[in-house]
Amino acid sequence: MKQEREVILNPMCLAIPGEVLAVEDERATVDVGGVEQEVRLDTLSEDVAEGDYLLVHTGFAIQKLSPEEAQETLSLFDELIETNKQLEEEREV
């Protein structure tokens, strides 16, 4: 029987993060938004292990993401906001 699959209309524009559940050779099983998906790893330079986060595009991993890096992004936002505030204060003085 043909399996029903959610039609993603614009896959070529999307890259979605997912968590690696298992790795075998050049393939990983990844939880992408609650759906298990087989993802090819031959487009990725880094090694991948269970628990890693991957950015997935049309069934291929294009980047390894780390929760720390996500945190780092937030600190970058805050840093910019802080520097700006300081500059403003200096200007006001």
Partner: peptide, 16 residues
């Protein structure tokens, strides 16, 4: 977009 983009990009994909 540091958490998903490295300065040199993805070397394996570029090579492919």
């Amino acid at each position: 977009y540091n958490r998903a983009v490295d300065y040199e990009g993805n070397p394996k994909s570029k090579k492919l």
